[in-house]
């Protein structure tokens, strides 16, 4: 549904996007992760037809964002990372304005607005002035605005930023519901555990390009190539950590009570070989297992590796 190939965008000497490539399948929820300045917002604003790329192609639903921006806009709902609302407009007037801006017929607009407000849990706020809503409510109203023309694709740039946990949970639930409705969602966020829960696929960006992409499991496994293994022994955890530290494939070994956390580069056979060596070394091993890293750790590992840290 979204196909981006070799997208490049410069702002003066700053390279915001440098060969950015990404595929998002129809009906999937794809998370875009990256540190500040990685190029997430630039990529999203190009997809939303707000900026032109210097090089490369971006297609939404098969339509090129440069050649057919009007067609792309009809297919796309865009929520920027920062947005304002109009003073002196009621909630239903705000949505009615955007419905008219998409040239939706007047008949049936009231029902549409009612349904959208119900979807985002603002059903009782239709007559409130938008500038008086709380931040969480404004975010949900912005989601409703994105949906006013029933787009197939949603581009959500940090939709839960600056919200309290309760408001975040509400926004998250709405996005989950949109995924169930079959919308294709491209979402960026700094709250990585939440992305892991929401997304079918994630892409980690750094320096204007995608470094790793795939399902959440694939990306967390990819990390930097090193796996976190916990070895629990009856006694002598400190000795074991010192014994492991200089061995091949071990980048870090640290004792933590009766266990040792080992960052080890190697496949399953090499893990088995390491276990045999530890046992042969005279350590009484009670547990030896790999700890699955979460998305946040994978993100730190991947972006750290790209930057040579």
């Amino acid at each position: 549904m979204i196909s981006i190939r070799g997208l490049t965008k410069r702002f003066g000497r700053t390279m915001a996007l440098d060969g950015f490539t990404l595929e998002v399948q129809r009906g999937s929820v794809c998370g875009l992760i990256g540190p500040n300045g990685a190029g997430k917002t630039t990529a999203m604003s190009i997809l939303a037809t707000l900026q032109l790329p210097d090089e490369g192609d971006a297609l939404v639903g098969g339509l090129n964002v440069v050649e057919n921006p009007a067609g792309v806009r009809a297919l796309t709902g865009y929520m920027p990372d920062f947005f304002g609302v109009y003073d002196g407009l009621r909630v239903w007037e705000y949505l009615d304005f955007f419905a008219s801006a998409y040239y939706l017929p007047e008949g049936g607009r009231n029902r549409l607005i009612g349904n959208l407000l119900e979807l985002v849990n603002l059903g009782d706020k239709g007559d409130c002035y938008v500038d008086l809503l709380s931040r969480g409510m404004k975010q949900r109203l912005a989601l409703a605005r994105c949906l006013v023309h029933d787009p197939e694709v949603l581009i959500l740039d940090e939709p839960a930023s600056g919200l309290d946990p309760r408001a975040r949970a509400e926004v998250k639930e709405i996005i989950r519901q949109l995924g169930r409705m079959g919308k294709t969602v491209l979402i960026s966020s700094h709250i990585l555990p939440e992305l892991a829960e929401l997304c079918d696929r994630v892409a980690i960006m750094e320096n204007g390009r995608v470094v790793v992409s795939g399902t959440v499991d694939e990306v967390t496994a990819a990390g930097s190539g090193s796996r976190l293994i916990v070895v629990e022994v009856v006694e002598g955890a400190g000795d074991l950590a010192r014994w492991l530290a200089p061995r091949d494939g071990v980048s870090l070994a640290e004792a933590d009570g009766r266990s040792v956390r080992v960052f080890f580069r190697g496949d399953r056979n090499e893990q088995a070989a390491l276990l045999r060596e530890i046992v042969a070394g005279g350590y009484a091993v009670t547990q030896f297992h790999e700890v699955r890293r979460n998305l946040e750790e994978a993100f730190m590992a991947v972006t750290g590796e790209v930057n040579g840290r």
Partner: peptide, 13 residues
Amino acid sequence: EKQTLNVLLVTRL
């Protein structure tokens, strides 16, 4: 300044 322009420009206007 109010950051309302982008959401206006992505409509069909």
